[in-house]
Simulated scan of single mutants.
Amino acid sequence: MYEIGISRDFLNGRGEIAWGDIGLSRIEADPRLRHRMIGDGDVAENFAGFDAVLVLRQRIDQKLLDAAPRLRHVSRWGAGLDRIDLDACTRAGVMVTSTPLGGKVPVAVAALTFVLTLTHRVLEKDRLVREGRWAERADYMGMGLAGRTIGIVGLGNIGREFARLAAPFQARLAAYSPRAEKAQADALGVELVGLDQLMERSDIVVVTAALTPATQGMISAERIARMKPGCIFVNVARGEIVDEDALIAALKSGRIARAGLDVFREEPLAPSSPLMRMDNVLLAPHALAWTDQIISGNAVDAIGSLLSVAANKRPGFIANPQVLDHPRFADMSS
């Protein structure tokens, strides 16, 4: 029997899979496979006895791999891999797969949702109506996008999709993305620039980059100080990319007029965080992109990878392709 573990962060407060059938019925249809929830608590030994695991935000490190010698596949529900030690997995003969396409459109739409909500000052205008302050509405003028510069930090799958979504609004699009191809950017109408230049020129900055050692802390206090006074800042990537203290200071001073944040340095965001008390910040619990479409998209790829590896077939979206050289995968068919 091929044993598949499901990390407990898929459960809601009632102890149920948060999104209903996330594709587990496809596993149940194969009599050679069995799935069950991984034991409670962050204990590496809970992963012993599994051939594969489906994880959401579970950390996979050397300690866990040492405790689970049978493990050969980690299927990550989502695109980010910052909680998984890919080198350790490769050494241990553990294949890691992800779902980079499932969230591409939903996360890009989430970023655009932040941009439109913040530029049109939707929350402030909602409060004006609820508080009977109609006479103040002229004090809350929004920002039109036509002719403005939107700077995209990270022109990967999500960044490119955001550029496509933003194009009809007639904004100027710029991006910082060292590995982006100029021809691809040109086709999207995006100008590739340096990060400092992007921060200085942009009326709106949207962060979509993956968290890596190179991007951690990339939006530093020095770079935030370069931003145009009164600009708008959106982060749908990872909180660790941004110096959160410097961001808070810039929001207090007004250098950044408004911000939309779906991610934070520490999650959940502490009730004591100054961000909780700021009227010029729109907050979401790392879930703004969670729609029926992201669930169905991730389910297709994450469960599909589990089924492929269980059948010794090469899946799509292997995050550590060097693992194919490991003896465990010598007979894997393409």
Rank of each mutant, 00 (worst) to 15 (best):
residue 15 G to E: 05
residue 17 I to T: 02
residue 23 G to P: 08
residue 28 E to T: 14
residue 36 R to G: 10
residue 48 A to N: 12
residue 49 G to C: 02
residue 56 L to N: 13
residue 69 P to N: 02
residue 74 V to M: 03
residue 76 R to G: 03
residue 77 W to Q: 00
residue 78 G to V: 08
residue 82 D to N: 09
residue 83 R to C: 13
residue 84 I to L: 03
residue 96 V to W: 02
residue 98 S to K: 08
residue 98 S to E: 12
residue 101 L to K: 15
residue 110 A to V: 08
residue 113 T to S: 14
residue 113 T to I: 11
residue 113 T to M: 15
residue 116 L to P: 02
residue 118 L to W: 03
residue 129 V to W: 11
residue 130 R to L: 14
residue 132 G to C: 03
residue 134 W to H: 09
residue 135 A to L: 11
residue 137 R to M: 13
residue 139 D to T: 11
residue 142 G to A: 03
residue 143 M to R: 11
residue 146 A to T: 14
residue 147 G to Q: 06
residue 149 T to K: 04
residue 149 T to C: 05
residue 150 I to G: 00
residue 152 I to M: 05
residue 164 R to E: 11
residue 170 Q to M: 12
residue 174 A to Y: 09
residue 181 E to W: 09
residue 182 K to R: 14
residue 188 L to W: 07
residue 191 E to I: 10
residue 191 E to D: 15
residue 195 L to A: 01
residue 197 Q to H: 10
residue 201 R to D: 11
residue 205 V to A: 01
residue 205 V to I: 13
residue 207 V to L: 10
residue 220 S to G: 07
residue 232 I to C: 03
residue 233 F to V: 02
residue 237 A to M: 04
residue 244 E to N: 03
residue 262 D to T: 02
residue 265 R to F: 15
residue 276 M to V: 14
residue 276 M to F: 12
residue 278 M to D: 00
residue 301 D to I: 14
residue 302 A to P: 05
residue 302 A to L: 04
residue 302 A to V: 05
residue 309 V to H: 03
residue 309 V to N: 02
residue 319 A to W: 09
residue 321 P to A: 02
residue 321 P to W: 10
residue 329 F to S: 00
